[in-house]
């Protein structure tokens, strides 16, 4: 029957905490890639150049409807075959960044579309160039309302980082697996990993909700 060994649990804690740092790093890196790439994907769908719009649209759909795990493998194994030697970290960040960029581009798109038409017309009337219209008028109004959605995906990325363990990124799950294999005890490492994820994702989600309310109040969207 079950035996939870506290001394074993405490002895593996330092290694798991160290690995938590790498998980956070992977999530942060992936998020950074996704934030920027997502905006590129969103803007590419708004150009008047039809082929670019359509290809981007299909790419986003494709990335969104296939498993991240498979994409991680694809980037890691196919990369070298077309001459891109990628370390597990780089491959992982590219895969997870691209995957979430597809999701974020939808969030951005929703935000951009929610900007009233009068804003576009006014920008045109005062003869602003397209880049300037986006940078000064549209994006500042489009992004804050999209914040809650962005926050959800940050938590999503955090929870998806264990998938990078399959290509050898030494994050939490990878470390827990190694500890389990060394000691033939999986209960403690996996349970602690679960608790660490709870401890990371619940406050992050809460923080983003708070942040979102503050931003909305500042913008006068809610009282």
């Amino acid at each position: 029957m079950l035996q939870w060994k506290w001394d074993f649990a405490f002895s593996i804690l330092p290694r798991l905490i160290e690995a938590t740092g790498k998980t956070v790093l992977a999530a942060g890196g992936g998020f950074a890639v996704a934030l920027v790439l997502g905006l590129v994907l969103a803007l590419a769908q708004r150009t008047r150049f039809r082929p670019l719009t359509m290809v981007t649209r299909e790419l986003v759909e494709f990335v969104r409807s296939t498993p991240l795990l498979l994409q991680v493998f694809f980037v890691y194994y196919v990369g070298p075959q077309i001459g891109l030697l990628l370390s597990p970290w780089t491959a992982g960040l590219i895969a997870i960044g691209l995957h979430y960029a597809a999701y974020l581009s939808e969030v951005y798109r929703g935000g951009i579309e929610s900007v009233p038409k009068g804003q576009w017309e006014a920008a045109k009337a005062i003869n602003l160039s397209a880049p300037k219209t986006y940078r000064r008028i549209i994006l500042p109004q489009a992004l804050p309302p999209a914040l809650a959605g962005v926050g959800n995906y940050l938590v999503g990325i955090l929870k998806d980082t264990p998938m990078l363990s399959v290509i050898g990124v030494a994050e939490l799950m990878h470390t827990a697996n190694a500890i389990g294999a060394e000691n033939y005890r999986y209960l403690e490492p996996f349970t602690i990993v679960g608790l660490i994820f709870l401890a990371l994702s619940l406050p992050t989600a809460w923080l983003f909700r708070r942040f979102d309310t503050v931003v909305r109040r500042k913008l006068g969207l809610i009282k």
Binding site: Q3, D160, M163, A176, N177, Y186, L187, F190, F197, S201
Partner: peptide, 20 residues
């Protein structure tokens, strides 16, 4: 919702048997 699906899978598959 607060933990990863992969963590849950491993937990159910590797740790749950210890609970019988």
């Amino acid at each position: 919702r607060g933990t990863s699906l992969l963590v849950q899978l491993y937990w159910v598959f590797f740790a749950l048997p210890l609970f019988g």
